[in-house]
Amino acid sequence: MLAFKNVSVSVGHQEVVRDLSLTVAPGELHVLMGPNGSGKSSLLAAAMGLDGYQVTQGDVLFNGQSVLKLSTDERAKRGMGLAFQRPPALEGVTYAAFASAIGAEDILEQEAARLDLAQFAHRDLNVGFSGGETKRSEVLKLILQAPRLMMFDEPESGVDLEHVAVVGQAIKRAVSTQTPDGQARAGIIITHTGLILDHIDTAHGHIISDGRLVHSGDARELFRHVQSHGYRAPAA
């Protein structure tokens, strides 16, 4: 579904991702780990075509077609979606209005309740939210959008332990649900804490360091390695 083909990404004049290749197939959920500043968020931002992130080498394919010439909204319309690490507050846009605008008002109440956000339906998006509320709100926003490819940038960071389970279960449920026309979805999660791994199903983990993919393997085994040895690739 998604393929990074020898991708390099620059922000300004600084190269932050270097010659990285990674493929995500339908039905798969991949986890990216790495130190701060290693290029993980930049990789997802470049995939979505956000301003300031320039793919200087390689290609990004979605469903077999390059998206590099598409605007962010065109990529979203094709089925790509990103839950931001630090989403903006949108004054004047309530969740009820947002859901209505994208045709998701029929699932808003149920999905908001699942993320313990039922009381937020008539509040402006992320305005006055705590850090944990903002993260749950961002997961809800992506679930309402229902893209085929769901990318989550540190969805459990700043979330209390009780709600990490809620967030993980919501992501697991969303990614495992087929599209209305019966197609499988796929997902990518960036994590620093690893707590989300207790609540999702995945066998696909990757360590990214200094802008390069240095190792791939079972996500939980990789996180245990990171806890003991840092972000160095495991010995062969």
Rank of each mutant, 00 (worst) to 15 (best):
M1Y: 03
L2C: 07
A3I: 08
F4V: 05
F4Y: 14
K5Q: 13
K5P: 02
N6I: 00
Q14L: 07
V17G: 01
L20A: 11
L20W: 07
L22Q: 11
V24W: 01
A25M: 11
P26Y: 02
E28P: 13
H30Y: 09
H30F: 02
L32F: 15
N36K: 11
N36W: 06
N36L: 03
G37L: 04
G37W: 02
S38K: 02
S38W: 06
K40S: 05
K40I: 13
S41M: 08
S41L: 10
L43R: 14
L43A: 12
A46R: 04
M48R: 06
G49F: 12
G49M: 10
G49D: 12
G52T: 10
V55Y: 14
N63V: 03
Q65W: 00
Q65M: 03
S66C: 09
G79A: 04
G79C: 05
L82A: 05
L82R: 09
A83E: 01
F84R: 09
R86G: 08
G92Y: 09
V93T: 12
T94R: 06
A97D: 15
F98E: 04
S100Q: 13
S100N: 10
A101P: 04
I102Q: 13
I102C: 14
A104V: 10
D106R: 13
D106W: 00
E109Q: 04
Q110A: 07
Q110N: 02
E111C: 00
A112P: 11
R114E: 10
D116A: 04
L117N: 08
F120T: 13
F120N: 09
N126D: 10
N126K: 05
V127D: 03
F129N: 13
F129C: 12
S130W: 12
G132D: 14
G132Y: 14
E133K: 15
T134H: 08
T134I: 09
K135G: 07
R136A: 09
S137L: 08
S137E: 12
E138V: 03
E138Y: 09
K141L: 08
L142S: 06
I143P: 15
I143W: 14
L144W: 12
R148S: 15
M150C: 07
M151L: 09
F152P: 08
E154V: 06
E156S: 15
S157I: 01
L161C: 01
V164M: 02
V166R: 06
A170I: 14
K172H: 14
K172Y: 05
K172W: 03
R173H: 14
A174I: 06
A174G: 07
T177L: 03
T179M: 10
T179H: 00
Q183K: 11
A186R: 07
H192R: 02
I196R: 07
L197T: 03
H199G: 00
H199L: 00
H199T: 03
G205E: 09
I207W: 05
I208S: 05
S209K: 15
D210V: 04
D210Q: 15
G211W: 02
V214W: 09
S216V: 10
G217H: 06
G217I: 10
D218F: 07
E221P: 08
H225V: 08
Q227M: 15
S228L: 13
H229Q: 13
G230T: 13
A233F: 01
P234S: 11
A236C: 11
A236N: 15
